[in-house]
Amino acid sequence: MTDSAASFSNRPVDTGELPDFQRVELHRVAPAFVPYAVISQILFWAIMVLIAVALRVVPFSPFAPAWWMVGLAGLAATWSGILAWLDARRRGWALREHDLIYRQGIIWRRTVIVPFARIQHVESSSGPLERVFGLMRVKCFTAGGAMSDLSVVGLDGESARKVRQHLLEQIRDTGDTDADRGGVGDVDES
């Protein structure tokens, strides 16, 4: 028997003793995210309302929507604004020793746990409206298709930079073994 086999153990794990993600205290997203979320939601529907009104007013318009359609778009704007407000106040994130947790959603509440050891790379970005409110988002890429990337939205610039830096350090620490085994960067294209 080899040394590694002798030192190997495989004791059963008591699931009750495992760290529970539900007990983790989440940080609220930045306060500026609340007005940002409401405005960005309302803005979309407001543009729809404006287009609908413009189509009614402009002469020789190919399609003039009825007033009830304009009203419906207005209602949708209000409803999505309320949902965005409720959601923004409940969104939260947390960093644990080995993973990142992010919770979002009002009608569908979704909690995502991303182990650091599975993150392939990290990206931080901010759109024009986000910049107005001093917000930034951190995007984590893992294997499993483009649909499965996680965007942590609603961080203030300082927190986003810290989170990104922390994630990069964690990736570097857990990725050392991967580099030896042929990790990221296996295909070079020019």
Binding site: T15, L18, P19, D20, F21, I113, F116, A117, G175, G183
Partner: peptide, 16 residues
Amino acid sequence: ANEAAYIAETALDHRV
């Protein structure tokens, strides 16, 4: 969920 996270975080093999 807790167990999957624990096993993924303690696994020797990391990224694919």
